[in-house]
Design a binder for these strands. Structure first.
Lengths: 359, 359
DNA sequence: CTGAAAGCGCTTACAG
DNA sequence: CTGAAAGCGCTTACAG
């Protein structure tokens, strides 16, 4: 069944069938109805390849997930916990707009060519990139060909510097404010010895969270120690190693700010095994608010990153840019939120209770 | 840049360029090299729509995720925990074979038309369906048009009955054996009072797990009680309600077999709030082995469903069928595994320890 | 308002 | 071994 068949059956030309399908206004209601009837009767749907070849959009966007984890790491925990809701949200929002989503995993620099390939083969109209280690040069290249891009978690300054032309939206959360809220909450609980379990420094959020930690402590005249600055790379295992090292080293801080929940969960496990109580002996804070954060005991105090809204924004922006002719680089920061649960408490003897802050 | 440009630059015809791209054997090495050089120099990639229109495959499969949860249920917990690894795995395996994946969410019966549409528009070569409430008639219809399908978690008997013709692979896990192993493990621990928190009965795995529970108890001459047969629908909230009802009713069983981990986690939470200790007062077992299962305290004893292998199988089968001409319906059952952790223990006074079974 | 025709960028018998 | 040509199924100026 092709448009020619529909035309014959409806007693019109292929041109008219096409005009009906594409909602041209200069088709009389009578004709439109006649054609639609035949279309519905035969469940006709135009061949997408033919439409695209004739100049239509693909109505498909590419979602590229750059994964921090190794390809053969079966757990791939970071991705599962953190990205899944994002992927869901992108698909939901795209589908709601009649747009298809082609999802790709990127595990290596070489895989990055997939992005270019998908565009060169004209499989997609636009792209969304999420994950670690974004190869900005490839993206800049594709963007300069005129394809819109939403980029999640990337330095706006670097985008402005590296993307000379193109339609690009950068979607971040306000991790600086989130970090600040968390640290001021801890300081408010009386903590003066606050360690950090940092994330990947080649990641925008990794750097922001770390930099803001340093900044806020400095503002409050609080010093940290080398042994309390742990490098966890956003990965559970690395985090566990670093925490163990700190424990063996001797004196613990009274609070540990972890740059993501995965690492916080890992830290909690190590502490528990070492009979270090949470939050009595040490307060542990996370970042992201992934699903398990509310399930573990003690439930994790963390900073919520609005992944769903970010996904929606990414889709919205990319579709908006698709309809525009001029280049444009836009920056969007969505609000983070402090989520107080049970893994942090007042420093003993500080005379402050957790409750004063949840109210 | 199109194949014509490459042809001109390489001093050959479009036909020859096409033969090089499609690996025809009757191209002399010399010619092939010459053409490839130009292709690489200009980063040429053939327009996919043109190829498809000319008769090539799309090299894209559709992944359709039927979601039990409501569209506007922000948590959509079931899907996140259970399906995410599956989606990941499908994408990994497809990409590894140079195949793209178009991911679609299905929330309503009406959404089911998306499947038909994707095929009619010739966007995909084959489909994989996962999730609850599979509208088998739509699938049968599409399958009868010759498009291969892998269906996850569906009754083989019903497939054989309803799909008269087509290329279909049904991929299940051995939930019957898994259920049996779990129940015999519990019975071995001395439990004679075993309740069940059942799943969705319009789901194949939901029915199998329930039916096998009844069967195994009967085989062991163990009776259950009406008040211990809870209907959780695979959903945390329903599960919590049912468990609460059972608690209020009075006597508890010594063990509760939950038909998925989400419900088990939910049950554990309710018990904890009611000061009922796990596993001392009641043993709780799950099914699936989702990520949080190993993280909660006590860690959940459960049955592992080999989601990753199932995803790989689904991709493999669908690609295999793509290369075949004849119709074929195949049934595949992948092994489940009993995972003993901390949420189940011997009935007090039974004189049996957990250790006797983990060895 | 509507049809005939050109064109989108490939692939593949066909003929040589 | 290789090129000219037909054809895939649409869309859209163009002409009327």
């Amino acid at each position: 069944m092709k448009s020619e068949d529909i035309a014959r059956l409806a007693g019109v030309s292929r041109s008219t069938v096409s005009r009906v399908i594409n909602n041209y206004k200069n088709v009389p209601e009578e004709t439109r109805r006649k054609v639609m009837q035949v279309i519905e009767r035969y469940q006709f749907r135009p061949n997408n390849s033919a439409r695209v070849l004739a100049g239509k959009k693909t109505d498909t966007i590419g979602l590229f997930i750059v994964s921090i984890a190794e390809k053969d790491n079966i757990n791939r925990v970071y991705r599962n916990n953190y990205f899944s809701p994002f992927v869901d949200a992108v698909i939901d929002n795209a589908n709601a707009n009649g747009i298809y989503v082609l999802v790709n995993s990127i595990y290596s620099l070489q895989d990055y060519e997939k992005i270019k390939r998908a565009f060169l083969e004209r499989r997609i109209d636009a792209g969304i990139v999420v994950g670690t280690e974004k190869e900005i040069d490839v993206i800049a290249q594709v963007a300069s060909m005129g394809y819109p891009f939403s980029i999640i978690d990337y330095s706006p300054e670097e985008i402005v510097r590296k993307i000379k032309k193109g339609k690009v939206a950068v979607i971040n959360s306000t991790d600086d404010e989130g970090t600040r809220k968390m640290l001021e909450y801890l300081i408010g609980l009386g903590h003066k010895e606050i360690g950090i379990l940092s994330g990947r420094m080649n990641t925008y959020s990794g750097r922001i969270r770390y930099d803001t930690y340093l900044k806020v402590l400095a503002e409050h005249g609080i010093e940290t120690r080398k042994e309390w600055v742990l490098k966890g790379e956003f990965i559970k295992k690395e985090a566990a190693n670093e925490v163990m090292k700190m424990i063996n080293h001797g004196k613990l801080p009274t609070a540990l700010f972890c740059c993501n929940d995965d690492m916080a969960l890992s830290a909690i496990e190590v502490f528990r095994n070492e009979k270090i109580r949470i939050p009595e002996d040490i307060s542990v804070a996370g970042f992201d608010d992934i699903m398990p954060a509310s399930l573990v005991k003690p439930a994790l105090t963390t900073v919520r990153v609005p992944l769903y809204s970010m996904a929606r924004k990414a889709v919205e922006e990319v579709l908006k840019m698709l309809g525009e002719t001029s280049d444009n680089i836009s920056i969007h920061s969505l609000e983070t939120e402090l989520i107080v649960r049970d893994s942090c408490t007042a420093v003993s003897g500080a005379g402050i209770t957790n409750d004063s802050f949840t109210a």
